[in-house]
């Protein structure tokens, strides 16, 4: 459906998109994840035709989009803060795209009713958009983007401004909705939870380039680089020398999975892969802090020398602050990271 081929956009010296290659298949939901300034919004604007390319191509349904203005691309875009038209009511907003395509009045009315039902706002057509809550605005924006049946729907931080509970509920609703409609979706977000919950495939961006692309489980369990690991919230990264099934680190000897790259590397230990044992040999670790997290307790451990280590422990196994403990690592929660792209 969508192909980006070496897409490049420069703002002065800085490349907002640096030769990005990306494909989105029909009916696929792809989430682009990255910190602010990583170029993910520019990516959407390029596809929508709101931002001109400095190099490369954008293809939609196999056709090069060079010179095709935004209003002829037939894609949908849901803006970060919705951008509902303030002078129109809910129905007027949803019908806008249909009117632009010259749809008849009867067709507009029918489709507006259908979409408002679909997004869970039946009969809201006459309401003023100023009177809507954040979640309702979001639904109207979605209905407006879906109404003209775009071949590709793009979402820019779709749930960014909503509070946490609502966000978690809506992301599930969205995924079900897109699955039912068979919509092809390209969403960008800086929230990993949102991206992983919504998408068939996650693309992590950094400084205008793609840092990693893959299924949510794959990206989550095998971050490709220290950047991706840290962006996903993993801070247990340490320098290591890998030899066979063992890595030498400041945290002592750490077992690594079979087939890991060898030599001087960076190494990630997921907090769940840390286990506490009684102090037997070697230097002891100190429990620096404990934070109760509901299903588990996050413990920060301080070695005699080297960076601190985060561990997730079951509730009943937690030692007191200041206690001296020993540490063991589980090989399947250890990832030897590839070199970061500079």
């Amino acid at each position: 459906m969508l192909v980006l081929d070496g897409a490049t956009v420069r703002f002065g010296e800085r490349a907002a998109l640096d030769a990005v290659d990306l494909e989105v298949a029909d009916h696929e939901i792809v989430s682009v994840l990255g910190p602010s300034g990583s170029g993910k919004s520019t990516l959407l604007r390029v596809v929508a035709g709101l931002q001109a390319l400095d190099g490369g191509r954008v293809l939609l349904g196999g056709a090069d989009q060079r010179g095709v203005p935004a209003h002829r691309r037939g894609v949908g875009l849901m803006f970060q803060d919705h951008q509902l038209f303030p002078q129109r009511d809910v129905g007027g907003n949803v019908a806008f795209g249909l009117r632009m395509r010259g749809a008849g009045r009867a067709e507009q009315t029918e489709r507006v009713t259908e979409l408002l039902d679909l997004v869970g706002l039946p009969g809201a057509g006459r309401r003023s958009v100023a009177a809507l809550s954040g979640g309702e605005q979001q639904r109207v924006a979605l209905a407006r983007a879906l109404a003209p049946r775009p071949r590709l729907l793009m979402l820019d931080e779709p749930l960014g401004q909503l509070d946490r509970g609502l966000r978690e509920r809506l992301v599930v609703e969205l995924r079900q909705l897109f699955g039912r409609l068979g919509t092809t979706v390209l969403a960008v977000t800086h929230d990993q939870g949102e991206a992983f919950a919504l998408a068939d495939r996650v693309v992590v961006m950094r400084d205008g380039r793609i840092a990693q692309s893959g299924a949510p489980v794959e990206v989550w369990s095998r971050p490709a680089s220290e950047f991706v690991a840290r962006f996903l919230g993993f801070d247990n990264v340490v320098a290591a020398r890998v030899t066979g099934p063992v890595a030498e680190t400041a945290w002592g000897k750490v077992p690594v999975p079979d087939g890991s790259p060898q030599g001087e590397r960076r190494l990630l230990v997921r907090p769940g892969g840390v286990r506490l044992v009684p102090v037997e040999e070697g230097p002891a670790w100190t429990v620096e802090s404990r934070t109760f997290r509901g299903s588990h307790v996050a413990v920060r451990l301080r070695p005699v020398d080297g960076p601190p280590l985060d561990a997730e422990l079951p509730l009943r196994e937690v030692p007191g602050e200041g206690a001296a403990v020993g540490v063991e690592f589980r090989a399947e929660d250890v990832v030897v990271l590839a070199d970061d792209i500079p």
């Binding site: 035709g49 209003h71 691309r73 949908g76 803006f79 951008q83 038209f85 632009m100 003209p148």
Partner: peptide, 10 residues
Amino acid sequence: EAAAVLGASP
């Protein structure tokens, strides 16, 4: 831009 994406010419 929202109008443009929804199919409105400039």
